[in-house]
Design a protein around this nucleic acid. Sequence first.
DNA 1: CAGTAG
DNA 2: AGGCCTTACTG
DNA 3: GCCT
Length: 770
Amino acid sequence: MTAASKSDKARFFEELYRLNEFESDGEPNEAREFLKTCSKPILSRTSEEPSLIPPRKVLKPFKKVPSIQRSISEPEKIKDVPNATVGSIGKRSGLRGNPQVPAASGSLLGKEASSSAGSADSTNQRPSIEDRRTVSNPVPNTLVLTNSTGIDTMLGKKRKKDTIKLVREADRIFNGFEFFFLRNDDKSPLRKRRITLSREHGAIWTTTWTNKITHLIVDNDLTRKDVLTYLKLNSLPPQVIMVNEEYLSDCFVQRRVMNSLLKKYQVKDPDAGAAKQMAPPPPASENSDSSLQLKAPQSKLSRWGNPPQQETLPRIAQARPASYPQQPVVTGGPEALSPREATTLSDKDGSMVAETQDFGALTEWIQLAKDTEGLPLDNEDEDAVDSVDHSDSDDGGASPLRAPAKRIKRFAIKQGGTNQANFQCMTGGTAASTANPNDYTISVLERLGAYYKRIGDQWRPTAYQKACGMLRKQDHLICTYEEAIEIRTIGHRLAKKIVEIATTGRLRRLESAEADPTDAPLKLFVGIYGVNTTLASEWLRQGHRTLDDLVKNVKLSENQKLGIEHYDDLQQRIPREEVTALGQYIKDAAAALDPDIEIIIGGSYRRGAPTSGDIDIIISKPGTTSTTSLTPFLHSLITHLTSQKFLVAALAVPHDDGTGSKWHGCCVLPSKPRQSQIWRRIDFLLVPASERGAALLYFTGDDIFNRSMRLLANKMGMSLNQRGLYENVMRDRWTRKKVTEGRLVEGREERRIFERLGVPWREPWERVLH
DNA sequence: CAGTAG
DNA sequence: AGGCCTTACTG
DNA sequence: GCCT
């Protein structure tokens, strides 16, 4: 690698990491509270910081978003752009050129650590470092330790004994390190998580300032001056490595000790002569905007005039006890280090350095060499790389600090030549309504998946969905690479993302993605019923940015017009109670028309979801063997419900020939006052009794579950669709298209389909795989 | 047929 | 390197 | 994206 490309890369990552900087850790009050505890408050910082936000009101150029994947990151010239809408033509503002984080997505932080992390209350201490040095006791895999600081009692809180689970030996990158955090409590969920993780990676967490401390981990919003003030020091002991939060994050993500000297890990120091310190963008006041989104549907036109706002990240209550920082704690107090302080830089420290710090120092220097020449940072954030994964081979795997995690994913009973156990449908999902410690991680990944979906990536969204489904099944917070990679359907890249989210609360890839100026309108467009990436990106290419633009300038299908007209309504999720009510209304109507008719509410409702995107109605009747026999009923039902003003629009109706089996449209709850009626998407599916089971299976989903079942059927030489399970299906060898329907194996009983496929029965609510 | 939705 | 679910409706 |  040449020197030139090296520095290029370095620059790139510097820019990348600038994305990672932010005002505070999402808890602005914390900074102030902390400073109160210092003898000398420093509050001038914000005013000194230059804004990084460039005056770019000009519309950024946009690029065509092709439906073909892969070209995602390819900047593309725009061919025919209508007039004024576009300022200039050029590269899209992608990852590289866009240092600032948009207001709306500014801070993913502040997410409350979920319960599982909470259980790892980490006020506790490992055995003192002396113990570990003198007694060469092999560290067991799990240590239950008790607190030695007494901080708990000071805080007047009863705390559980915590259990930290050390990561496997090879990954204990912090062995021999002793960390002092500043702020030094674990009140902030994220800090707590960092502390726990540090310990799990071999570090010792100390809340008392001692001379054994190797690393000082400083909150991002604190300056060097804050630190010194807090510690009542004039200068830092030379052997102590002071770094910011990013340092830990990167260590975890890369599973190795990073070079603490890199600029991005330095604690801010406005006083350090050079006023060129990069300052994070000013705090974003996103409230005015986000309120718009949450507003009730009355503002139907709210979205029309201007491009939509970015969705605000889920924010967890930041309520923090006012008592927060407490006294500087330290039993030993800063006095404990007075001897060393006195000798400052004299070589008296030399021996001590050698003794207590060599671990840290050594690895540090080794690492420094590596960092500065190899720069093994991977470049996954650049979409275009589908080259082989260099990141694990760059150091030849020689580093003991970074043994590549070999994945041992279980194999199982082969049946008919397929690894049946590897199908997701073999393992149940969990009810979506159940809170999960990984919910936050999931929400972030889902957003990135959604992003990939709307830019036309065909497969990533599926991969993300699967990963989210697996995460939802875990009973504790997944926050190490190891834990993540062990999970089926989670590979190297997703594992790294998961770690990043869990340890930093953010995902830079997502932030840069959503920062793309074309993303907001793209998101807006694909939200229209009947519009997907292809159309949306075409409209975008033509320069359209608002729904208004579309209505005025674009030829729209009737369905799309409807989709725009009721955009806000159809965007909203439907509370379960309303689905129940809507379903009941239909049942009543159906019973009046034909008492034998069976109405089943399928979809996410049947899976037990608390809210649904639409309503799926299965219409069946005992004794029927063809959809044709049900079409007359559907017809009269539709007519009736329409006259009742229950159905308010038809989007897709079956062909006239009577073979059609589904009806798509919109409905409202007539009982409600007109004004509060919200249009809902509703689907009817006609199902003869002989196909009831298969239809139920199909209409219950979820998507991933269905596809998994179908794929399994496929591998077993069968075919599964909404009508039944078929065998002896002949497929074209080349196109893999079905040539013969095959022989019906089962369609009537849902359970029998499971059985025939060798899949243990899953209740509907166990079929939540995404 | 491609696009969209399920 | 190549697969990744299947069918139905729209225009 | 992941898996074979």
